[in-house]
Amino acid sequence: MTTGCAWRSALARQLPLRLTAGTFFLSSGLSKIGADEATAEGLQQFAATAYPFLGGQDARKFVRLLAAGELAIATALLLPVVPAAVAGGALTAFSVGTLGLYLRVPGMREEGGLRPTEQGIALAKDVWLLGIGVSLVVDDVNERR
């Protein structure tokens, strides 16, 4: 169990990471809540390109679930009572999914490499989310030792 002083120290260390990623996810989740049918279909079709099992879902339901997931991650990151390992684990899992899109959707990367195309930059930059998520998990695990 961590002491109050150690907990505050860990929170101070993690705060920039949690605020940065948390506000990003809050904004992204809120923007998807009222998505119109065309936006919902576009997002679902894009995701289904990399993850075909998503193609059979209702597009509006898919976007509502995506928004709810993003808002749950935002909440976990922004509420300091949520352990960093939990928030970081959720962020890591989500970022692995978005990086999967980057790796699987045609046109996101230059031929034969990992370097992003102009279209792929939006997903390739999500590697910072993976770094933040893993850092939060590692920091929490080390703090508990």
Rank of each mutant, 00 (worst) to 15 (best):
S9Q: 13
L71R: 03
L17T: 03
E110L: 15
D36F: 07
L66P: 07
F62D: 05
A76C: 15
A47T: 13
Q44A: 02
K32Q: 14
Q119E: 15
T75D: 01
F24H: 09
G112K: 10
T3N: 06
E37S: 06
N142H: 12
L123A: 11
L101T: 10
L26R: 06
G56K: 04
L65V: 05
T98W: 07
A10T: 08
V137C: 07
A124E: 03
I73G: 01
S9P: 02
R145S: 03
A12E: 09
L136D: 09
T39K: 10
V81Y: 03
P83K: 01
Q14H: 11
L11E: 09
G120V: 10
I132V: 15
A50Y: 09
V86E: 02
T98S: 10
L99I: 12
S9V: 10
V63P: 12
R64D: 08
G120I: 09
R109E: 03
G69M: 03
R109L: 05
T3L: 04
P16Q: 11
E111V: 11
G113E: 04
G97K: 02
R145H: 01
K32E: 15
L99S: 06
G133R: 02
A87E: 07
T39Q: 14
D140R: 15
T20E: 08
A10N: 10
A68W: 08
A122S: 14
L66F: 13
A84P: 04
A90D: 00
T2C: 00
L99M: 14
A21H: 04
T2Y: 00
R8V: 01
G113V: 05
L43A: 09
S28D: 13
D140M: 11
F94D: 03
A48T: 03
G55E: 01
G113I: 04
G131S: 00
L91G: 01
P80S: 14
A93F: 11
I121K: 14
P16F: 09
W7V: 07
G100R: 08
P83F: 02
A21K: 02
C5E: 11
L91T: 04
L66E: 14
L130K: 05
G42V: 04
C5Y: 06
P52W: 06
L15T: 13
V134L: 15
I121H: 08
E111P: 11
L66N: 09
A76R: 00
L130H: 06
A93E: 06
F94G: 01
L11F: 01
V127M: 00
F46D: 04
V141S: 01
A48G: 05
A84S: 15
F25Q: 06
S27C: 12
A124H: 04
F46C: 00
D139I: 05
W128Q: 11
Q45R: 14
G100P: 10
L103F: 15
L66H: 07
L136W: 09
T23S: 11
A68Q: 04
A74D: 08
P52K: 06
G55C: 00
V137A: 02
D126W: 03
F25H: 10
A47I: 11
T23D: 03
V82A: 08
L103H: 08
